[in-house]
Amino acid sequence: MKRLAATLLLAIAAPLLSVCGPVNSASSAALAHPDATPFDPKANAGLDLAVAEAEARPLLAVFGANWCHDSRALAGWLESDRFAPLREQFAIVYIDVGHPQEGEGRNLDLAAMFGITDIVGTPTLVAVGSDGKVLNAATAKGWRNAASRSGDEIYAELAGYAAR
């Protein structure tokens, strides 16, 4: 009886197990992203930001956390070889915000300096022109889906900020 039950279980489970294997479709490749963990909760984010602002060039302030897959994805793209031309145009600062959606945020005062308040998700990306003006106030909080965006989409949006 046990042998019959095991045989039936394998007959039912075998087709299901094959679905759980690696998928090599174009759609999954399009969503693949590099991963980086540059958000240091012990960093002096205010000092890092001041140093970057002193460079007098456009700035990308990325408010995120290493626990967040969207923050890691965005940081991964920004640190990839593909995005090297953008890193030459922008000073990039990674600012750890803790868990703002749980009321345990940190460095939120730095986002408020740019007029970005009520951060409840990560990442939040603030693009600042070399003149100190925020370029994306309306969309800064819209990066919570960064892991779902393609590298081309992210690059195009950031390049658009550089062109301003």
Rank of each mutant, 00 (worst) to 15 (best):
T122H: 05
A112P: 10
D48R: 08
P22F: 04
D118V: 08
L86Q: 13
A52N: 04
K133A: 15
G98E: 03
H33R: 14
G105F: 07
N107T: 09
Y94K: 05
E102Q: 14
F39P: 00
G98Q: 07
D152C: 00
A32E: 11
A30C: 06
L86A: 11
G105N: 07
S27L: 05
S18A: 10
Y94A: 05
K133F: 10
R82F: 08
A163R: 15
A65R: 13
V93C: 07
A5R: 15
N66F: 05
N107L: 13
G160D: 14
A52W: 01
Q89D: 09
Q89R: 11
A65Q: 10
A45Y: 10
L125Y: 01
A137M: 13
I154K: 11
T117C: 09
D81H: 03
V120D: 15
L47H: 05
E88T: 12
A137Y: 06
L108R: 00
A30L: 14
A50L: 09
V126H: 03
G105D: 06
P58M: 02
F90M: 05
S25Y: 01
G129D: 11
K141N: 08
E104Y: 05
R87H: 06
R72Y: 10
P41C: 04
I119D: 09
G142Y: 00
L110K: 06
L110I: 01
A156W: 09
